[in-house]
């Protein structure tokens, strides 16, 4: 077959453009770090939706019957039954446990005794519509309410302090977590597909995140659904729709990516937490498990894989 000059030129242009596209994509998306599995803990609660790891590396799981606590070896050492399905859990320095239900917060002692509870349904100041997440620091609770599209600040005894309003939250996924340095907290602004950072005066400091299906972007109507922050300021995120988890540097550049092939189809509620060993804990409700990962360099991961093959 003989090619005309025009066809030849067109073909060469196509090859060149294709190469540029593939090269550009690879350059943008190839992350320098990887996820290395490091054990998992089986979950017995029905409909698990939230996790938390305290300073003793105890894992807390929130689900339909309440909250289960596991020691650092993965052995369950307590179940705290709540009046309604638990949606999120957080623990303070003294071990007191805060459990969020849809429109109610219950506070328990470390041995599971109910101390106090509050919360009423509504749209007013301090009222709840659909609480999805909470975190505690220095006697204050930060509560994400997806129904009212607000982040609330409460005192630990249930007294309402203030709120940030007007988040764009299209679905029941809205996460808040305190940063490692006590000065900032982080929010998943799902409707705008970005991670936002706020100071303790409830003022937004910065944000990052881009819409799209590409590995480093946040996909669909409302992502990321969950997040957690490492000690050095790196941020891990989880998404629904395309279930995947990623780790970003503090400025929002992607460092590691674990795609949908690693998770059951249609996985949601993949809540995240970190432990003192800088492992990332990922709740995988469809597997009824909390998986642990270490974030390692791609080279280290390659070495580990080769050693596994050799052994």
């Amino acid at each position: 077959m003989r090619l005309t000059r025009r066809a030849w030129a067109g073909g060469m242009l196509g090859v060149a453009l294709g190469g540029m596209r593939a090269g550009g994509s690879a350059a943008n998306e190839a992350p320098p770090m990887a996820f290395e599995p490091d054990g998992q803990t089986a979950v017995t609660l029905n409909d698990p939706v939230g996790i938390y790891i305290d300073h003793k590396d105890q894992l807390y799981v929130a689900g339909a019957e309440g909250v289960d606590r596991y020691d650092s070896n993965g052995q369950r050492n307590r179940r705290i039954e709540t009046t309604g399905a638990a949606r999120a859990v957080a623990v303070d320095e003294s071990g007191q446990i805060y459990v969020a239900q849809q429109t109610r917060i219950e506070k328990f002692s470390a041995d599971g005794q109910l101390i106090t509870a509050w919360g009423e349904s509504g749209r007013g100041d301090g009222q709840f519509s659909y609480v999805t997440s909470l975190d505690e620091r220095d006697g204050f609770l930060f509560i994400a309410d997806a129904g009212n599209r607000r982040i609330y600040r409460f005192a630990g005894n249930g007294v309402y302090v203030d709120a940030i309003e007007k988040f764009a939250i299209p679905s029941y996924y809205f996460d808040v977590t305190l940063g490692p340095d006590d000065h900032y907290f982080y929010v998943t602004h799902t409707g705008r597909r970005r991670v936002e950072r706020y100071d303790r005066n409830m003022k937004r400091v910065d944000y990052w995140g881009e819409s799209g299906a590409g590995a480093s972007k946040f996909f669909g109507c409302c992502n990321p659904t969950h997040l957690t922050v490492f000690k050095d300021g790196r941020v891990a995120t989880a998404e629904k729709g395309i279930p995947r988890i990623k780790v970003y540097d503090p400025k929002g550049a992607m460092l590691a990516h674990l795609g949908q092939e690693a998770f059951p189809k249609e996985s949601v509620h993949m809540d995240l937490a970190t432990d003192s060993r800088e492992r990332l804990a990922v709740l995988v409700p469809k597997d009824r498990a909390v998986r642990f990962y270490r974030i390692v360099t791609v080279e280290a991961k390659k070495d580990m894989t080769e050693k596994d093959h050799d052994s």
Binding site: P170, G212, A213, G220, C221, G241
Partner: peptide, 18 residues
Amino acid sequence: CGYCELCTGYFELDPVSL
């Protein structure tokens, strides 16, 4: 409905623009 800006029922998975 979430009245989403990026509605995945309306837009292609990776739209050129919204």
